[in-house]
Amino acid sequence: MATAGKKEKRVLWIISIPMAILALSCVYPVYFALNNALKDNRGYILDRFGLVQNPTFDNFVQAWTRSNLDTYFLNSVVTTVGAVALLLVVSSLAGFALAVLRFPMRRLIFIVILASLMIPVQVVLVPFYQTIIGLGLLNTRTGLIISYTAFFLPFSVYLMTSFYAGLPRELVEAARIDGAKLIQVWWYVMVPMGRPALITLGILNTLYCWNDVLISLLVLQDQRTLMVGIAALRGEYTTNVPLLSAGIVLAAAPIVILYIIFQRQIVSGIAVGAVKG
């Protein structure tokens, strides 16, 4: 980005104050969850906002055992990693074709994929479920990986298409005219250039898959994923907030830790993608 002048720098400093306040508010839920996860339910009811008095790790132990976190964890990791990998490959291929290549029915295909983004999930549950049963994918991790891919694909394809369409066209054209095989163009040109978008998609899709409850409830009934275990910690009418907080902290921890560890790589990955025009 263009470098800021002296006066402009001062303005940026002033702007950073409300941004810092916003950042504080975003840290608050983390504090809230951690702080309450250390309280017992009675302590929470008596004082919801105060700092924990007698910290207990009981909630973590309970959340761990009651929601079978050890066995569910593996299911979550396998299905999330599988689905995200599949999503990245399928959506960058499709985005490349839709944004760059010239072929008949491109418009129609793009519209169909875009339209499928708008289908309310409830309406497709029963036929979706029957398809899963029909394909013999019920209660398999493969089934869940394919389901996640199918559900989050329209969003991913759309993002990749938008991103590739925004790239300077000459780059792609040059690669194509070179007479390179298109699969090589994809791998050596489109994937590296698409890195910022692919990283973003990786983050968002990881989050979507990891946090999903509904699809996993249907497809993986006798094994379950982590978030389903956590969701089941909520009672019929009451929620034991400390217990649930502990569950959510446990479930969110891998994501947050990964995000923070790879923050530098993510930032530089996105920066590397910046093209010279």
């Binding site: 409830q122 549950l125 029963v126 479920y129 029957q130 049963i133 019920l138 409850v213 509904l214 409830l217 249907l218 009934q221 006798d222 389903v228 969701a231 089941a232 909520r234 009672g235 019929e236 009418y237």
Partner: peptide, 22 residues
Amino acid sequence: NYVMQPNDQYYTILGTALASGA
């Protein structure tokens, strides 16, 4: 085999499963 479902989606899931004969 007890399967505990999250309360908010219980009848949605049950309805889907019953409608699919499963």
